[in-house]
Design a protein around this nucleic acid. Structure first.
Lengths: 134, 134
DNA sequence: ATGGGAATTTACGTTGACGTAACTCAAACG
DNA sequence: CGTTTGAGTTACGTCAACGTAAATTCCCAT
């Protein structure tokens, strides 16, 4: 099974399109725990699963610290009711953050579009601001 | 005319909901040019107009440096054809940035929602990830 | 044995937009 | 006249997620 294959840092980098620095950084931040055979790091299936979750988390806009907490929560096993609830809560918070962020963005886009409406209004606006700025 | 009234830094802070540090910072970055009467800063109508544009720019997601460039462009007067074109260009770039950012955000939201679909799928997903992470 | 190519460690640098501390200075109040 | 404000300056601190440089160590092939 190439599934539980052990990978070097370079293989990981190529597989996930990240730099070595990033992987060491994640290890330092206790997001990954590669096996330390002598000097070298060996990344297992476990690390690949975690890295996948990390990268997904980043796409979702979680900070590394939030991701670590989520990873820890679900990793620390039992009382899964509570843990899951907490995880879910965090995810929902993030979701609502993202939605309001999107809404703000949409509003800003609308405003900017309005402002740019065939350059004319923009010119007018700038003229006005210019007068005001003198 | 209370319109060309001159304002102290505190009045400005209250009027625009910013800190003194922010106003001094903007001055240092050459975004504002309050009159320096002795030690004190006196903010004119011009500064208020500029600050309005600055804050609007920030809502639009421009960096302070971009804002400064825009302000400089339109401030430096003539050849308004070229200047306006350039301004318009920058604004359009920003707009398309914002739109793609919004799209990414929407996609992330969709993914996250899917992931959270009645917690059940989330539990399953986590179980899976958990197995994989062991 | 020697040169090369990975991988490692340590530690400082980067970016943006301010926050914050420490100290000075001047007007204003009681 | 003492002191409380309010403003000012200087300069270092913050946060995130790495980038980057320098020096070292490791194994492998020539």
């Amino acid at each position: 099974m190439t599934d539980d294959r052990i990978m070097t840092i370079r293989e990981m980098c190529d597989a996930f399109d990240v730099t070595p620095r990033t992987l060491r950084f994640y290890e330092a931040k206790e997001l990954l725990f590669p096996i330390r055979e002598g000097q070298k790091r060996l990344f297992t299936k476990r690390d690949r699963a975690r890295l996948k979750l990390i990268l997904r988390g980043k796409r979702f806009g979680f900070s590394l610290e939030e991701i670590r907490q989520l990873l820890d929560l679900y990793h620390m096993g039992d009382q899964q009711q509570t843990q899951l609830a907490r995880t879910y809560e965090i995810a929902q918070q993030r979701l609502s953050d993202m939605e309001s962020q999107r809404d703000e963005l949409n509003q800003a886009i609308d405003e900017l579009k309005e402002q740019m409406r065939w350059g004319e209004k923009m010119l007018a606006s700038m003229d006005q601001s210019k007068k005001a700025a003198e």
